[in-house]
Design a protein around this nucleic acid. Structure first.
Lengths: 212, 212
DNA sequence: GTGCGATGTATCGGTCCGATACATCGTGGT
DNA sequence: ACCACGATGTATCGGACCGATACATCGCAC
């Protein structure tokens, strides 16, 4: 999963590790907390060994002018290679069980703008299937096995069931949208607030002021 | 996390691995898919080495009668020890950042019927704090950095934000309920009260008897 | 002038997962 | 009478990922 995410991000611009982590956190913030360096750096090493990215010290071209003190030491910039782009295309196009799990789906979805429509549809439907199954499992539990579980566990299941139902509805919408031809849900104009059409009552006083 | 869950389950009844996994999946079905044997068995080994559980072959006492053919071979039953119960009490009572993450919170919550009220409250509030922070991060993203992200990523964030808001509301309810004294929430029909004959006496001034 | 938070790279031990292997049991189909 | 198949059941291995930790630089506020 990390491999896919890194390759996808480096396709937008070369970056160094710290930056990569920040972008990763921004892009995947909805599904995972923050990528650990303990996985990031080894993965970068692995990608480099496979020839999918290249590593270059970030010494400015005018290095001789400020050689020692301000030398920006250590900063290592990673760039994706042609083989890396190929690898990304291969990873992003392939679907399977691991694509439908929470993390896998999230990462794939985050790169939907680089995924062709047929694959997008396949992933959305596979994810829906997965969540529907989880939902049915929870329904069964709340029905048949309810008396075996204590009230807290039951409440947890109930909350999980609700989340499943909600996600299925969300996926339905996305699938319908996808089939109708238009790419994303609602296009993002410059007004930065996402869409609102169902709920979210309190917009007013929020017009972005500059710093006081 | 697995350690806590296993200790908690074995406190209800001795079990063998397969059964443990099923119960684990039932109890934690809302938060994780299914526990892998690749983590279950090594953890069992670890718990046994620490003296928190004991292992016993499930050969029936009348084994001599049907020695070879129907010998139920292999079946290994694990039982929690006194030290194990102590360890569980210690684990269930301690709170910290890892208690507020998705998995950690779920496992702790699933054993709330064995947790004293003060700890329950502390965990619920910590979780709420964590989700609120995640929510703020997503809000910022959707506000400030919206133009830097494509429509699909934005939609993912929006969905994540909604989930955060929903969970915060859920937690508020649980906290209010907890403060008011009644143990679990009372969801749909009010008949969800399935309890087993647990003994959870240790914390004073907490344990709820079922007589109003 | 100095402490402190952000930037930045890197490793280590440990937890957990997915794939795989293998054996037994009951049931139903042919 | 046979056996295929899915459930039950135990177990290991390689790999992905995390949390803690260490260390060094930079800008800036006090």
């Amino acid at each position: 999963m990390l491999e896919l995410a890194i390759l996808g991000l480096l396709q937008e611009a070369p970056m160094h590790g710290y930056e990569l982590r920040k972008e990763l956190t921004a892009k995947l913030g909805a599904i995972r907390a923050a990528i650990s360096y303990g996985s990031l750096y080894p993965t970068l090493r692995r990608l480099q060994a496979a020839g999918w990215i290249t590593e270059a010290a970030d010494t400015p071209a005018t290095a001789e002018e400020v050689p020692a003190l301000t030398s920006r030491r250590g900063r290592v910039v990673y760039t994706i290679t042609a083989e890396g782009k190929e690898r990304f295309a291969q990873l992003i196009a392939q679907t399977g069980p691991e694509t439908y799990g929470d993390t896998g789906f999230g990462v794939h979805f985050a790169f939907f703008s680089r995924t062709d429509q047929a694959t997008r549809l396949r992933i959305l439907e596979g994810r829906r299937r997965t969540i529907e199954e989880r939902r049915e499992g929870l329904r069964d539990m709340l029905g048949r096995a309810a008396e075996r579980l204590d009230a807290y566990t039951l409440e947890l299941q109930r909350h999980g069931l609700e989340a499943c139902e909600r996600e299925v509805r969300w996926l339905e919408e996305l699938i319908a949208n996808e089939r109708s031809g238009r790419a994303p849900t609602v296009p993002n104009d410059g007004t930065a607030g996402g869409r609102r059409e169902d709920n979210s009552p309190p917009p007013p006083g929020e017009s972005r002021k500059e710093r006081p």
